[in-house]
Structure formats: structure tokens, C-alpha cells
Design a binder for these strands. Structure first.
Ligand SMILES: [Zn+2]
Ligand SMILES: [Zn+2]
Ligand SMILES: [Zn+2]
Ligand SMILES: [Zn+2]
Lengths: 164, 164
DNA sequence: GCGGAATTTGCAACATTATAACATTAGCAA
DNA sequence: TTGCTAATGTTATAATGTTGCAAATTCCGC
């Protein structure tokens, strides 16, 4: 790959956010689901960067907004966004990140940089099929696959601690 | 695969435990690491079944033992056991399970049954290499790979809710 | 065995993440 | 309007994990 993926280089991140929100509106409309102001705001916050955000981080920003929110507000919004396929939960971090393949059927694989904290979501058909095959050998019926790879992104592998 | 893996059928589980403890003793000796009574007891508890056990579950049993333990006791023992490669943490469940490949260099892949809760650890070279390849395409240097597959085990796929 | 260093454990407090239960409000349609 | 459903507010609590320091144990050279 000659040009590195978005999280690994400077880019117009406002465009990422705008695109994500636009996609979300479309998708929710298609699903007859209501993208309420709280839900939309939470999605926007999750998209603040390519680093996953904890539920309580979201909560803190909502508080700054003047929104008098409690944990259930955030968790409910996040549950909704997950159901709509708009965000993913990163189990190894207890944190959430915007889905970069919203609307597409995909199995996310996440590359998590230990140094800068950025996360890249990949669609990896080769991995998915290998997992499916391995499960099938045990007669196991996969339902949901979690693949999270911790390591070092190209930027940090050469020189540590960027903000991306 | 004609005969199903251990967690999916009745077996002499005491033999699993005994083997795991024997392996642990050998491995710790090789590493010059001290398998103290607390650590050994925690390992034994983790091996009580092929279902992952939460740290506080372990704590509760220690309390029944009469061992006046606090959370750090358990977490320290678990950290130690993880470092020795004797247990794995299942991120999607916040729980721990005995490693069935202790001593071997391996990348665990976990098949987690949503119905009976049993977990099968596989070594899946095809999956590992596919993950490595996908990461390499993004110039990402993997360090630690988490692969957890939730779904239904062969027993539960046919008829639900065994105890295994 | 003895004494000092290093490892391990005990213990108390605390931090973080997530959920339960129930009241209230907003959206929508008959 | 009225009545239903989905969404949110509110309070409390559960579940999971960590920090910091003191005491005890173990190891190792003497
Ligand atoms: Zn995605
Ligand atoms: Zn990085
Ligand atoms: Zn293992
Ligand atoms: Zn099962």
C-alpha cells in the first residue's frame, strides 16, 4: 500500500465527521430509526478523532455541552448506534469508535496503535474466511467475530507518539 | 473433524485440571517463576470448567476457602498466570480461561458458545497468517492479536443449553 | 543459621465501566 | 384530544479493575 490510511496521516477530519453524520442520517432513515439529537451528538463525539472514546469521556463532553446527562443516556445512545452499525465497541479498550464502513456488510478488524491510540478499521475478507473455516472445522456456528490487533502504526513504528 | 473437542462432550475433567497444574509447575520451573499456593489455587479455580471465570468469581471461591483475599490478590495472580502463558483473558467477557496450549508458542482463537458458555481455544495458523498479512498491508506491526468468536457450539446448535 | 535484598501478599481505599428500576416526556396516530 | 410507544431523565447500585503502602515471606550470599 503506497498511501497510508486516513488515521495515520493528517487529513481534513471535519470531512470524516460530516460524511459519517450524513451516512448516519441516511441509514437511520432507511431503517426507520430515529437519529435523535442526543444520538446524533454522541455519534459526532465518537467521531471527534480516530481514537476510541470511552462512554464516560462522551458523558464528560455532554456535560460541558450543558446537557445534564447520566450514564444510561450515553450507553443507550451507544447501544442504538451499534445496532444501526454506526459505531463499534473495542472490547480490549472498553471504548467506542465510529464505523468507517457504515451501511456495508462487513466484519471489522481493528488495528490499534499502542503509541498514538489511533484505530484503523479494516475489512479483511481473507481473515473472515479463515476464521469461518477454522470455526467450521469444530462445527461451530459463528455469530459475531471480534478481531482486535494491538501494535504499532506506521507512523509510530518509525518515530513514537504522534497525535494523528 | 469427526470427534468433537473436549469442552463439547463429557470427559474426565479432573484429568484436564491435573494436566494443567502439572504443566504449570513444569513451565514455572523452566521460567524460574514461583507458582505459589495462591497462584496455583487460582489456576485450579480457573480450570474448574471450560467456561471462563470472572476475577470476582475467583475471589468468591477464595473467600469460601477461608482465604481472606481482596481483589488485588486475584488480579495479581491472574496477571502472573497470564505472563506465564497459563491463562488467557477473554476481552469480550471480562473473564479468564485456562490456556490449553501452555508452553507452546501460539495465537489463541476462542470459540465462545452463547448458549452453554463453554470456550474452545484453537490454534489457527491460517487465521494468524491472514491477520498478519492484512496488518502488513497497512504497514502495521502487530504485537498482540485478540480473536474471539461468539456463536453456538455443536451441541447447542442442535439442542440448546448443555452444561458441558 | 543470619542478615539484607527482592518478591510476594495483605489491606484499605478508590477508580472506572456498566446496568437496574422506575418516573417522565416527546412523537405519533386514531 | 386521547392513548400508545419510543425515548429520555433520574437515582441508585452493580461489576470490574487499580493504586499505594505496609507487612510478611522467600531467596541468596555469607
Ligand atoms: Zn465497521
Ligand atoms: Zn501510532
Ligand atoms: Zn492459549
Ligand atoms: Zn454450547
Amino acid at each position: 500500500m503506497s498511501s497510508s490510511a486516513l488515521p495515520y496521516r493528517p487529513h481534513n477530519h471535519q470531512a470524516c465527521v460530516a460524511q459519517a453524520l450524513a451516512d448516519a442520517r441516511t441509514i437511520c432513515q432507511q431503517h426507520n430509526a430515529r437519529l435523535t439529537p442526543t444520538r446524533e451528538r454522541v455519534l459526532e463525539l465518537i467521531w471527534q478523532s480516530h481514537k476510541p472514546l470511552g462512554a464516560y469521556d462522551v458523558l464528560a463532553v455532554l456535560a460541558e455541552d450543558g446537557h445534564n446527562a447520566a450514564p444510561p443516556t450515553v450507553y443507550r445512545a451507544l447501544d442504538f448506534l451499534q445496532q444501526q452499525g454506526l459505531v463499534h465497541r473495542i472490547a480490549s479498550l472498553n471504548a467506542f469508535i465510529g464505523c468507517t464502513h457504515a451501511g456495508e456488510r462487513h466484519n471489522g478488524m481493528f488495528l490499534i496503535c499502542r503509541s498514538c491510540g489511533n484505530v484503523l478499521e479494516l475489512t479483511a475478507p481473507g481473515v473472515s474466511s479463515a476464521v469461518t473455516r477454522a470455526a467450521a472445522e469444530e462445527s461451530f456456528q459463528p455469530d459475531n467475530v471480534t478481531i482486535e490487533v494491538a501494535g504499532y502504526c506506521p507512523r509510530c513504528a518509525s518515530e513514537p507518539a504522534h497525535d494523528g
